[in-house]
Amino acid sequence: MELMFALTVGLLYAAGFFLVMRHSLMKLVLGLIFLSHGANLLIFSAGGLESRGLPIIAEGSKIPQYPMPDPLPQALILTAIVISFGILAFALVLVYRSFRLTGSDDSDQLDSTEK
């Protein structure tokens, strides 16, 4: 299980960095999405991987009945997902705006202030 998660996280990061380095701005946004998913999955696996049940202690009991994953990373991911939702929505709008202004999706065209 750990190996699968590690490979998936690695794959997401690799794909993310690859896409970020492409010319196309749309691929840039996709790459950023992959990167944030990779980070989220990494935090998720940092909490421990247990498939036996939810990290909720049964009512009336003070200790867990079975080994359970740490619930805190899941709360952290929730926060991170909310934040990346907002920021990636903004990034999409930004890329769309840029497309409307320059008529191009190529990041090499973003040089009007450099000339």
């Binding site: 944030s36 990779g38 980070a39 990494l42 935090i43 696996s45 940092a46 990373p73 952290l76």
Partner: peptide, 9 residues
């Protein structure tokens, strides 16, 4: 974020 995740783990 990844660094924080590994640190916590």
């Amino acid at each position: 974020l990844a660094a924080v995740g590994i640190l916590y783990g």
